[in-house]
Design a protein around this nucleic acid. Structure first.
Lengths: 358, 358
DNA sequence: CTGAAAGCGCTTACAG
DNA sequence: CTGAAAGCGCTTACAG
C-alpha cells in the first residue's frame, strides 16, 4: 500500500507555465457578486436557481476558463464518477471487445473509467483495487486473476465499492458475474466436428486454473463421451492462450502419434496461430486439418481460411456488466449470481468433412 | 463540460453494505493518542518521524484496514498521481504495444493511468482532457485526433498539465513528440521491393489527414523517384488502416489495370488483411505478390507467410514518452520538438524477387 | 521528534 | 430563489 502523491514528500514542482491564477467557484461567485452556493447549484443545473442566473453563471465559467475540481467535489460527496476495470490483458482482442462495450455504456452515463491489466498477478490486481479505493472509485468491473484469494475478491465490496465480474467466475464468490456458457459453447464446436465425421479431435490451449478453462475442457470431454468417442488425455495440449502460443503448438500437434484430424482450440487467437503453424508445415488448414476457434473475434471472418468458431458474446458481456453496475450505483439491486450468455456456432471454412491423414 | 459527480444532484445512494465506520487518518491518530500530522508523515515514510513510531502507525493502519484518501491529499497538494493517455484506438495492437511500454514505466513510479480512445473524434478527445484536468491529472500523453484544433492541443499545458505527443505529430505544436521516422521507414520497404526487381509497386492504406500518413506516402514517392520509377497515382489505394480494411482492399488491388506485383502497406494489419484477401482470391501472397507491412507487430512473424515489415519502435516510443513526462514532472525540462525513432527493416517470407503477373 | 491549526475547493443543510 | 457557514480528509508551515 502506498501513500502520498507519487509517494514523494513535498512534491511541489515546476508547473508547465504561468497559469495566471487558479479560477475556482469562488472566483466566479465574486466576479458576479453572488454566493458560491448559487454558482455550485447553477453549474449542476439545479432547479433551485433561476434560469437567467444560471445562464449568466455558465457564461462566466466559460469566459474565465473555469475547470471544475472533481477532487474537491468528490471529497464532499464521496462520489467520484470513476469506475475501474481490470482484466488479464487489454491487448487481447477478446478483452478488447468487452472493454469497448463497457466504454460505450459508461460514456453515456458520464463516468470516467480507469483501466488496468493484471496479467494474472494477484499482487498487481490488489494494487489496482487499492488505488481505485483511494481515488474513491464508484465501482469496479473485474475479470479476476488466477489465484485471487477470497479476501481480495471482497476488498472492494467490504469498502463500499460494488464489484461485478466478467468472463471468469470465482469459486465461492457471490458477486454478480457475466460470462459465456463455456461448457455449452465448446460442446457446439466439438459436436460440429463429430458431425463432420472426425473421431480423433485434439483440444489445444487453455488452463485448468480458470473457471473458463475447466468448463471448456469439461464441455469437450462431455461431448466426446456423449458421442461414445473415447477420451484420450494425450490429445489435450494445455497451455496456449495467444496466437503465438497456437503457432508454436502446431509442431506438437502435428507430431501427435494419434494423428488427430481436427482441433478444438481454446480461442480464436490460438486457432489462427495453429492454422498458420499448420500452413507453415506444408499442410492445408481447413482441408487437411479441421480447426475451430472460440470467441468469434472480428479477425475470425478474415483469417485464412475463414475460421469456424463459437460466438461468445463479448460485447454482450461488457454491456450487461456495465449496465448492472450502473443500475447498482443508481440504487437498484441486480440479483447476484452468474449470468450466462448463450454461445452460438459460426460455421466458416476452417472445418470440413473427415479425411484420413496421410 | 459537465459538473458534479455523475452529473446528478444529490446522488447519495445505497452503499453496497454496512461499512462499519470510515477509518481515516484521525482514527489512527486517536486510537494511538498522537496527532494526525505525525500519522500523515509516518505513512509517507518521512524521516521526521521516529522509526518505532512509524512502525506502530503503519501497523495500526493495516490493522484498521485504513484506506488512504487520495482526493483529500490531492486537494491539498494539487498532485494526483494520475496520468492520462489518449490514443486513436487501444484495441489496435500498434497502440497496444505503445501503451504496454507506457504502463510499465508508469507502474514503476507508482502513477495511476487513465486510458481513453478518441477514435479520431475531436470532441471525445477534448472531453477526456477536460475530465483529466478536473481530476487534477499530473500529465497527459496523447496521439492527437485528426483535426485537433491548436487550442485543444494547448488545453492541457494552458492549465498547467504537461502534455507529450506520441505516434503522430501536430503541425505548429511545440509539444515534445515521440514517433518513428515514417518517411525513412517506408523508403526502406519501398527500396527493398525495388531491389527485388519490382517496378509496379502499389501503396495500400493510410490517410493524408495525419502527419504519419503524409510522411509515409511521401517516403514511398521519394523512393520510387530516386530509382527513376514513374509514380502512378492510380497505384495508391488510400483509406485502409485495419486488417479488415486490408482484406477488403485485396479485390481492388487485384483488379488494378497496372497489375502491380508488389504492395507497400500502411501497416502490418493492412498487410495481413491484404495477404489473406489475396490468398482467398487464389493467389499466393509472398510469391505471386510481394507484400510489406509496417510496425513489426508481434503478429507479423507468425502470419502466413511471415511478414516482411519495418520495425517502428512502438515500445521505444512509449517508454521514451513516459520517461520524458516523468522527468518533466520531476522538474527537469526535456527539450521540446520531435524525437524520431529510426525504423529498421525486417525481412521475412512475404516478399520475393519480381515475377511477371499472369 | 511531535502537535495545533489553517486551508485545499467544493456541496449541503439551514436560514432567510 | 439566494447567502453564510460548516465540513469532506488530507498536508503543511509553524511552534515547541
Amino acid at each position: 500500500m502506498s501513500y502520498g502523491p507519487g509517494a514523494r514528500i513535498n512534491p511541489r514542482v515546476a508547473w508547465g507555465g504561468h497559469v495566471a491564477q487558479k479560477i475556482k467557484l469562488s472566483t466566479i461567485a465574486e466576479t458576479l457578486g453572488i454566493s458560491t452556493a448559487t454558482v455550485s447549484l447553477a453549474l449542476r443545473d439545479s432547479p433551485l436557481v433561476a434560469g437567467t442566473t444560471r445562464d449568466k453563471i455558465k457564461e462566466q465559467a466559460r469566459a474565465l476558463g473555469y475547470i471544475y475540481n472533481r477532487r474537491a467535489a468528490s471529497l464532499r460527496t464521496s462520489r467520484s464518477g470513476i469506475i475501474g476495470v481490470v482484466v488479464h490483458d487489454i491487448m487481447n482482442p477478446f478483452y478488447g471487445e468487452i472493454l469497448k462495450a463497457i466504454e460505450s455504456e459508461l460514456d453515456r452515463s458520464r463516468h470516467t473509467f480507469i483501466l488496468s491489466n493484471h496479467y494474472d498477478s494477484v499482487e498487481k490486481q490488489r494494487t489496482f483495487i487499492e488505488t481505485l479505493l483511494q481515488l474513491g472509485g464508484d465501482g469496479v468491473i473485474m475479470s479476476p486473476a488466477i489465484g485471487t484469494p477470497p479476501e481480495d475478491m471482497q476488498l472492494a465490496e467490504d469498502n463500499g465499492m460494488p464489484a461485478i465480474l466478467v468472463a471468469r467466475s470465482m469459486e465461492g464468490s457471490a458477486l454478480p458475474t457475466y460470462r459465456g456458457d463455456d461448457s455449452y459453447g465448446i460442446s457446439l464446436a466439438t459436436n460440429h466436428l463429430i458431425g463432420l465425421g472426425h473421431r480423433s479431435i485434439a483440444m489445444i490451449g487453455g488452463t485448468d486454473q480458470t473457471s473458463t478453462g475447466r468448463d471448456r475442457y469439461q464441455g469437450y470431454v462431455n461431448a466426446l463421451r456423449k458421442a461414445e468417442i473415447e477420451v484420450d488425455p494425450g490429445l489435450r495440449i494445455p497451455g496456449p492462450r495467444s496466437m503465438q502460443g497456437g503457432f508454436e503448438a502446431a509442431v506438437h500437434f502435428l507430431s501427435l502419434p494419434q494423428k488427430p484430424t481436427a482441433a478444438v482450440c481454446w480461442n480464436d487467437l490460438v486457432a489462427i496461430g495453429l492454422m498458420n503453424g499448420i500452413a507453415r508445415a506444408g499442410l492445408v488448414p481447413g482441408s487437411d486439418i479441421s480447426v475451430t476457434g472460440y470467441d468469434d473475434l472480428e479477425e475470425a471472418s478474415i483469417s485464412m481460411p475463414a475460421l469456424t468458431t463459437v460466438w461468445n458474446g463479448q460485447a454482450e458481456v461488457g454491456r450487461l456488466a456495465a449496465r448492472a453496475l450502473l443500475d447498482r450505483l443508481a440504487g437498484s439491486h441486480e440479483p447476484d449470481g452468474i449470468h450466462l450468455i448463450k454461445p452460438e456456432m459460426r460455421i466458416r471454412q476452417s472445418t470440413s468433412p473427415y479425411r484420413a491423414r496421410t
